[in-house]
Design a protein around this nucleic acid. Sequence first.
DNA 1: AGGAGCCTGCGC
DNA 2: GCGCAGGCTCCT
Length: 266
Amino acid sequence: MPELPEVADALRRINRFVRGRTIVAVSTHHPSVARHLPPAARRRLVGRTVTTLQRLGKHQLFHLDDGSVLLAHFRMTGDWAIARPGTALPPFARVVFTFDDDVRLVLVDPRVLGTITHHPADAPPTLDLGPDPLSRRFGAALLAEQLRSRRGPLKTVLLDQRVIAGLGNIYVAEALWHAQLDPRRASNTLHATECARLAHAIQAVLRAAPGGRYWERQTSDELWQVYDREGEPCRRCGAAIERFTQGGRSTYFCERCSREGTREGT
DNA sequence: AGGAGCCTGCGC
DNA sequence: GCGCAGGCTCCT
């Protein structure tokens, strides 16, 4: 379930169960996660206390009392669940951390693409992330600078975590629709007014995000303006939403609105 | 830039 | 069955 708002929401949900607690056991329930968190790492984690939780883009950092870091990434389908003492593990439980109060933190991840790794204090993880779109310093000027530094299509550039940290396929589509920009446009050709529109749109869609577990809620047609709405009428102009592939991923956009937006932006 | 790989589940 | 999936890395 990972884009920035969902990761932030997941951390918020688990915070009170995890912060200040000491790990008494770690178990993996799939070879794929065991590869990233081998027996030696699991042993090292036992006895450690979680001091603080931190989000950097879509990465989650659990800072431990010995200065080491537990780094988690949900990828496509990861999420946290809390299993109270005596309760069964949820379906698709892949990693289980048991704390000193018998509460368990569970990585739920059907596709098992998520990763959890442990980094000793003397070898912290290097993440190479661009600015966070929800940080105070993010705005038109910073976005313009980032977009000028690349030359690929807007959609691809915005998905690059080194340019902006936290945007994924859904919110890029939504932000570009709001800003009325064509995903195929070269990122270094945007004018100042277009950058301003896009910066505003990015923050707006992230702030308005439905939070965690959105796939459990309504249908995507009710949730999004363009994402997963191929062939449906654009809510701004009524034209059919189009889908095509960009960098191996689906891009949804409204042609007519992009054309209008380009005219306004020049 | 494009494609394969990592993995599994779901909807058609 | 087949194609698709919210991410990211590595390889032509």
